[in-house]
Write a protein that binds this DNA or RNA. Sequence first.
DNA 1: CGTTCACTTGAAAGTGTTCAATTACTGTGG
DNA 2: CCACAGTAATTGAACACTTTCAAGTGAACG
Lengths: 236, 236
Amino acid sequence: MARSALKPIACVNCGVYELCYSVGGDTDLSMLDTIVKSRRTVKRGDFLYQTGKPFRAIYAIRLGSVKTSILAGDGRVQVTGFHVAGKVLGLDAIVTSQYNCEATALETTAVCEIPMSRFDELSKEFPDLQYKMMNIMSQEILDNRELMLLLGKMSAEERMASYLLSMSQGLEKSGASATQFNLSMSRSDIGNYLGMAEETVCRILTRFQEEGLITTQRRKITLNDPERLRAVAHRK
Amino acid sequence: MARSALKPIACVNCGVYELCYSVGGDTDLSMLDTIVKSRRTVKRGDFLYQTGKPFRAIYAIRLGSVKTSILAGDGRVQVTGFHVAGKVLGLDAIVTSQYNCEATALETTAVCEIPMSRFDELSKEFPDLQYKMMNIMSQEILDNRELMLLLGKMSAEERMASYLLSMSQGLEKSGASATQFNLSMSRSDIGNYLGMAEETVCRILTRFQEEGLITTQRRKITLNDPERLRAVAHRK
DNA sequence: CGTTCACTTGAAAGTGTTCAATTACTGTGG
DNA sequence: CCACAGTAATTGAACACTTTCAAGTGAACG
């Protein structure tokens, strides 16, 4: 799959890193700088974008966390994802030219905004950029599949364990602690995401705690025994 | 989103239509012909590709049907999709350079094979091709989200009704009858796909039949009252 | 200091699963 | 063309897991 050498450039600490990465090398960086520069901060509870709004830009999370959710016709909501630094959001809007989910900040969150028009221009110049984008999308398809497996085949306990582990993993990747972190989602959001009632979330967390797997104190969570947690996630 | 005029070309009856579409116009068609020409037929039960095999090509279904499924660590299987003519498969392999699911033919199935190498060459010449590909991927992300909603929020009955309707819709799009068709998946596959036991599939189909919504005779199915079925799918 | 919202816990009620047994097809070979 | 074998589909009954409804606790915030 070697298309051309990909060299990293200056925006390492930015969520767009992935994208930037693909442009690297002996290219005009000033232009890239222009796309990366447009930043935005959203406060807890505010929307990054909403269903139906025209698709103008994709976003990369630099700091904070965002949940995405969709509304079914009858008002039911499905939380489709919980995203931290590094994640690129808004890719599902490409086909329809409008956003197809709500992206809500769970805490004060900083993002890079990459206008599609700019992206289009750039990708003419740097074919690798589009290729990289395809990679990111492909990865997203893969991740979603994971969630499908979770929702379709796992018991509530397995789902919860998987969730905690993936959370841990995601945060570790973005530089935070893997064993102690803040669940920025409410129990209700978590339940919604994992396809179970809020009460079930509580009960399972309590059970995990009783078994010494974790320690919870409100939204602060500590994984005491990741290994055993992995075992729980796997089958039960 | 108008990037350039897209004109259809000769390969209308081929699943790659979507892709071909984007290359259209005043371009060298002989080259395109080369990618479209490589066709393949797979028999019922045979793999189009398998997890772990190196990623060489993407496939577009011309005729027949294919199911995709993934294996969890412990041997459990999740059917992730059921695909008919027009569908492009293998996109999830782009990031990892190897296939990440099994694609199994449910009946004798004809596909277009589009080697990635060829695709890469072509996309240098026709930037629209990559753009189109992004569209297709974006659509796939959207579709998967639908399934997540289904698995996470719906009752077994709703899931079944949704499934029948989406099946009907998909077949209609590819030219077949929307009210009478052949379920090429077994009850077990359907159950797996919808996240329920095989027995539950049977029971619900029986119930639907008793209520006059459908008529089933083995895998042949008739939707007697799509309207009411839609109502069932929506909430219950 | 009280109100509110998020979280927790209990008990009863469903919904769907599992296991086991039976019945219908499909295809094959006589 | 029929009988047989093997698979797929269906049905029943007991059981398990999760939800729902209801009530209570605790932390945060004005």
